[in-house]
Design a protein around this nucleic acid. Sequence first.
DNA 1: ATGAAAGCGCTAACAT
DNA 2: ATGTTAGCGCTTTCAT
Lengths: 339, 339
Amino acid sequence: MNPAQTSRPPTVHDVARAAGVSKSAVSLAVRNQKGLSEATRQHILSVAQELGYRSNVWARSLVQGRSGLVGVLLQDLGNSYHRDVTAGVEDAAAEQDLRLVIGHGRRDAAKLRTELDSLLALGVEGVVIVSSWLPPQALEEIARRVPLVVAGRLPELVSGVDSVANHDEIGARLAVEHLTELGHERIIHLTGSARPAAMHRQATFREVMREHVPGIEPRVEGPQRVDAAVRHVIFQLREEKAPPTAVFTQNDRVAADLVGACLDAGVSVPGQLSVVGYDNSSICRMLRPQLTSVDQPRQQMGRMALEMLSQRLAGRSEDLHERLSPQLVVRSSTGVPGT
Amino acid sequence: MNPAQTSRPPTVHDVARAAGVSKSAVSLAVRNQKGLSEATRQHILSVAQELGYRSNVWARSLVQGRSGLVGVLLQDLGNSYHRDVTAGVEDAAAEQDLRLVIGHGRRDAAKLRTELDSLLALGVEGVVIVSSWLPPQALEEIARRVPLVVAGRLPELVSGVDSVANHDEIGARLAVEHLTELGHERIIHLTGSARPAAMHRQATFREVMREHVPGIEPRVEGPQRVDAAVRHVIFQLREEKAPPTAVFTQNDRVAADLVGACLDAGVSVPGQLSVVGYDNSSICRMLRPQLTSVDQPRQQMGRMALEMLSQRLAGRSEDLHERLSPQLVVRSSTGVPGT
DNA sequence: ATGAAAGCGCTAACAT
DNA sequence: ATGTTAGCGCTTTCAT
């Protein structure tokens, strides 16, 4: 059924014999190295073609001591944010003649760790982790073996580990100031995570609130039990005399939950409540009202991650931490309060 | 900075010398093969541990002539459907002691093809393609080199290629009969693709319509220009004397576009228009109204795909095409017409 | 039970 | 410009 599986694939040796040259001539020819006359090269290539020869990566890697492989570890395949970052990594990798191997962490730190070991065993020369959930100590351990770049915010700086992330402080400020400029004062921050990026957004929320609405104590809902936090926001809207008029959420998923709960409860968005998301994911344009959100330069982050990796491969030794500026995309989920 | 990169990693030889045994003894010990006394095995293992020895995959693969690698090629990373199928593949692969390497087609047939070649070059023993966009001839060519299973409907049966897909005819029937049972008669099918799965859903739509509403000519919008098709549905709703009361869409994305356009145009869902999606993706529960949709057994499809692959690896030669039954998940986007 | 030797397919250093 | 030789790290006979 699968003939190629039964009769072994041709080797340099087979090609050499068929072409009447030596193994090294074949090796040079297929790698486009110089040291051969144009005539012999063409001849060898055509024979190789005819035999269906493909050089064996394992043998090549073994003898050269390098694989040209870079691992990309995704926390969650199926997340469009991760897809876009990966696309950037892919583009940059193609330019650098590096091959990508994608691993899947399945939103589970233990699984992520296993997957990482498996990538290392495969012989990757470096690793990009998109949204690492690993403890600093694990990251440091990996960085001792191969260059490691994390796309996303680290809980703390880890020696030997580079990172590239969006500037959460700028993003959060854009979001909150957008709301205060519209005239909102009673703004809630709704968060579903205590991870670094979320914590920075939260801290900036407090800071911007103190700057612009000094009289009002900033309120934060979450990060445990997002559903309960959402319900509590709805409760405040219905029961309080001076209810919140806007919510800055930690990301679009949380925002979508909130908007859904509002519509279910008869709360109009943005009439009674303005909502801002974070990530500018594809759901923003699917929801009604369409979601105002903070857009991270995802693809550029991926590209930069790989470039940082290849610099490491080339010998850079000091750590690098890049912050890229996000932008606010205003849509219809935000408006002047009470309209 | 990265000591492991400077001082070369230990080899069998290093371990053998340190433990005072031969290379072959080390080889046997680390692979848990029999032929060693328990004492020496333990000794070797502890020395290996201490030196931080990890066997070199390339060398192993080279000598054994097999890699234990299986490639999974995703048309679109960042698609939750693909993620769930992949999760199934991963679970099954873990049981079979096979490692997964994920490749990314980036929704581009040419890129998919390149990625596939790169997986083959990596030495995968088999490939699972999730939602293949490749022409039959390309699939056949690949299947001649390694076992190939496609998760998703094939345009035509290809010799040597296995497939596993949801039963589109059953899914489409569930959706359309749900609508006719609610009392709908003027139902439109809205599609954005001419790929096999979509075509089967469309054909079934026509068939079920003829069965249940024989007096009415089934209408299909699309597959070109989904946005134009959506606008045309809205146009019919506003201008026709007997406008459609329900739409069966080809998938949730198209359904989301339609629902959004309806709300923008002041058409109430499901009051004026009931909408059914396909795939039961995560957006179903984010939208308001929440989307009634057809759920494919995604994870099970992935698991089955890998099991079929490993049967091929074990020698099965006849082609296999599995169809798994989907289920309808009723939510709030469908209701009795005109309410 | 253990060791020695051959070789997987390839490349690189060294002849010619 | 081309061929020869010696490994890369590992497994696998085949001796011992």
